[in-house]
């Protein structure tokens, strides 16, 4: 349990630095540090699938994407925050915190899964029959690609659609014609 508190303090410090620093690159790296802390936490919670996805997406995706697109001349952010935006975000954080306190009070103690309280949960079927029905040793793969194949199809469709939109909008031909029309 101690390791979780250590990681939590690490993630909090990294998040505060990410918000408070002026340099964009160090801010992005601090967000990546938060992601690394989260993925190590998932590893200690025995969820290696989530840990791999978290570290790959958060660290590689975020940092490399920012580094690749912003390139060399990184901007320094200056100026104060907007008052209205600050108030709204504090209110939203307060609401989520209060709701979280209510929800977390109902959870079973740490280490026991939630579905142990529900007698006919779907997870019981997955764990009991997953290996024999699908033949996949990795139960996560068996669920996301066999039992929940529709979810994965929807996720792939979302990705596909967003890529189509991005490439169409960022194509130089499209931008050139827009510039010509605007003069």
């Amino acid at each position: 349990m101690v390791i979780f508190y250590v990681l939590l303090v690490f993630m909090l410090i990294a998040a505060i630095i990410a918000v408070e620093t002026d340099d964009l690159l160090s801010s992005v790296i601090c967000v990546g540090a938060v992601g690394v802390g989260g993925s190590i936490m998932f590893l200690f919670l025995r969820a290696p699938d989530i840990a791999i996805t978290q570290i790959v997406v958060e660290v590689l995706g975020l940092i490399i994407l920012i580094r690749a697109t912003i390139a060399r001349d990184l901007t320094f952010i200056s100026g104060d925050r907007e008052f209205f935006g600050l108030v709204v975000s504090i209110v939203i954080m307060l609401v989520i915190f209060l709701a979280g306190v209510r929800v977390l009070g109902n959870l079973p103690p740490f280490g026991t899964p939630v579905f142990s309280q529900v007698p006919d949960a779907a997870s019981r079927t997955y764990i009991a029959e997953g290996l024999q029905k699908t033949g996949a040793a990795n139960i996560v793969a068996a669920i996301i690609l066999d039992y929940r194949g529709y979810d994965t199809l929807g996720e792939a469709t979302v990705l596909f659609t967003s890529i189509i939109g991005a490439t169409v909008m960022l194509r130089s031909k499209c931008r050139k014609s827009l510039e010509d029309r605007n003069g």
């Binding site: 699938d49 791999i52 996805t53 490399i64 996949a136 990795n138 996560v140």
Partner: peptide, 18 residues
């Protein structure tokens, strides 16, 4: 090895892209 060990298509695809 996504069906045997942790990982899978999404994580592996991101690694290949990276």
């Amino acid at each position: 090895f996504g069906h045997l060990t942790p990982g899978g298509g999404f994580a592996g695809g991101v690694i290949i892209a990276s």
